[in-house]
């Protein structure tokens, strides 16, 4: 088991691909959410919503980047990073909210709502595609061969 945990994983990192997909979808949806919250809560609501979306996306990207980076080193390190990364990211989110708590534009209700709705919404949206590709692996695009294989 010790050797197995030290195994490293090579190849493209699926976490970063998933996180990148989520960011692309969030970029599509964000203007609508900002506009809706802006209509309800005013300029402060719109800015708070934008801030919450940025927080959620940064959280996804940081988690994916850390997992992808450590998976190339060893599975044991990836396991440790997943756990401690969770704590560190929670702390960073708290710090990010703490830093803006006294600014004029912070409106707590849209900020909190947007964090939950964006996080869960993007996950469910992504899950539809992931579950489809797991259920029908034949629909996946063929993996790109490495450059050396192309030349030979």
């Amino acid at each position: 088991m010790g050797e197995a945990v030290l195994t490293r994983l090579d190849g493209p990192a699926p976490e970063t691909a998933v996180a990148r997909d989520m960011v692309k979808r969030a970029v599509l949806v964000a203007p609508v959410m900002i506009a809706v919250c802006g209509l309800i809560w005013g300029v402060g609501g719109a800015l708070s919503t934008a801030y919450a979306i940025v927080l959620v996306l940064a959280n996804f990207l940081l988690a994916a980047g850390l997992l992808a980076w450590t998976a190339r080193i060893s599975l044991g390190l990836m396991m440790g990073t997943a756990l401690f990364g969770y704590l560190v990211r929670l702390g960073l989110i708290f710090l990010a909210v703490w830093l803006v708590k006294d600014t004029w534009w912070v409106t707590w209700v849209p900020l909190g709502l947007t964090i939950i709705v964006t996080h869960l919404g993007l996950l469910f949206w992504e899950m539809r595609y992931v579950s489809a590709s797991l259920a029908f692996p034949g629909l996946k695009p063929a993996p790109v061969p490495p450059a050396s294989a192309k030349e030979s």
Partner: peptide, 29 residues
Amino acid sequence: AAGMVRTTMFLGIAFTEALALIGFVVFIL
């Protein structure tokens, strides 16, 4: 099967983390 496992693991982590985020939102409210 590592690619498939990592994809589902990442989504699982994110879903689990949503619970902590809900707690965080309750905290800030």
